[in-house]
Amino acid sequence: MAAGLSLSLWLWRSRCRALLSRPAGAVRAHRGLAAGPEMHFGFQSVTEEERREKIYQVFENVAKKYDVMNDSMTLGIHRVWKDILMHKMNPCPGTLLLDVAGGTGDIAFRFINYVRSVRQRQLQRKLKHHQNLSWQEIFDSYQKDQFNSLGDSQVVVCDINREMLKVGKQKAQHLGYSEGLSWVLGNAEELPFDDDKFDVYTIAFGIRNVTRIDLALQEAYRVLKPGGRFLCLEFSHVSNPLLSRLYDLYSFQVIPVLGEVIAGDWRSYQYLVESIRQFPPQEELKAMIEDAGFFKVDYENLNFGIVAIHSGFKL
């Protein structure tokens, strides 16, 4: 009897130790508790928390080689796509932009350059209409306007990853960007900004890596002013069957190899390729943006749908 009781006690203790040594998700599942909704990390099925942690680690790993890899993977075409996004935005001096998941500063720097160019043309037109001014008056007016080269425009770069922000700040310092630019550590699903604050919200190649796209879209809507514009540049779905097969071949056979050779990281770039295939197609993303409250939602395919720019307005 005593021997049987001792054996039962030993088995119970062993089972407890086994349960305690399991990951938290496994313990919850054993107890019949929910481990969180199942989500995709590339082609893997993971919990929401696991996805968030894995994606953070991906960008922690690739931050220093991010720009080089973008040029290598897209043969430099990503620069053209971002230029098209900026021309579609067509910001004027005074615009307040929030660029989410923009840690390396690509959109922010383009915004500053674009607004400066518009501001410069405005100044030149203004001086042409004042031919009767003296040289001193023209000089004083020019100096005054040059001092405020962005016309009170501001761009706030918000990214969840400290390493990406660090790279962006270093680039800004190296390239001489400081005026009208600020950096904020923040989550796209829970932005640290007031309601109705920004004129434009952009997210370029970032929404694909957000854990809850619906929450990110709701936050975009919240922080935009009435009349504000949402712009999303993201890899999408190619409609041409032949091109789609060639694109898949390049994506799965070439891009991870480039990741290994250039960044020493095969797995992160394998995930990035897989995440594109798991991302909602153009019409589905359009419906999600409309569900978040945006109006006049449309999209423009670039390079046969390899990427798409989605646009919507908060009315």
Rank of each mutant, 00 (worst) to 15 (best):
F109A: 02
R110C: 04
I112N: 01
N113L: 11
R116W: 03
V118N: 06
V118M: 12
R119W: 05
Q120A: 15
Q120H: 14
Q122E: 14
Q122M: 12
Q122N: 08
Q124V: 15
Q124Y: 09
Q124P: 02
Q124R: 13
R125C: 13
R125T: 07
R125Y: 08
L127D: 00
H130D: 02
H130I: 05
S134G: 09
S134H: 06
S134W: 03
S134M: 06
W135K: 09
Q136D: 10
E137Y: 05
I138F: 02
F139Q: 10
D140A: 14
D145M: 14
Q146Y: 09
N148L: 09
L150N: 06
L150C: 06
D152N: 14
Q154H: 15
V155C: 13
V156R: 01
C158R: 06
D159T: 06
N161E: 04
L165T: 04
L165E: 01
K166F: 12
K169S: 04
K171Y: 12
L175C: 14
L175S: 13
G176T: 14
E179N: 05
S182A: 11
V184D: 01
V184A: 02
N187H: 08
N187V: 11
A188W: 00
E189I: 11
D195R: 04
D195F: 01
D199M: 02
V200F: 00
I203G: 00
F205Y: 14
R208P: 03
R208T: 06
R208D: 03
V210S: 05
V210E: 00
T211K: 05
T211M: 06
R212A: 15
R212M: 12
I213Q: 09
D214P: 07
L215G: 04
L215E: 13
A216T: 10
A216K: 14
Q218D: 07
R222V: 02
P226C: 03
F230Q: 00
L233R: 03
F235Q: 08
S236Q: 09
V238M: 14
N240M: 13
N240T: 12
S244C: 15
S244Q: 14
R245F: 13
L246I: 10
D248T: 15
Y250C: 10
Y250H: 08
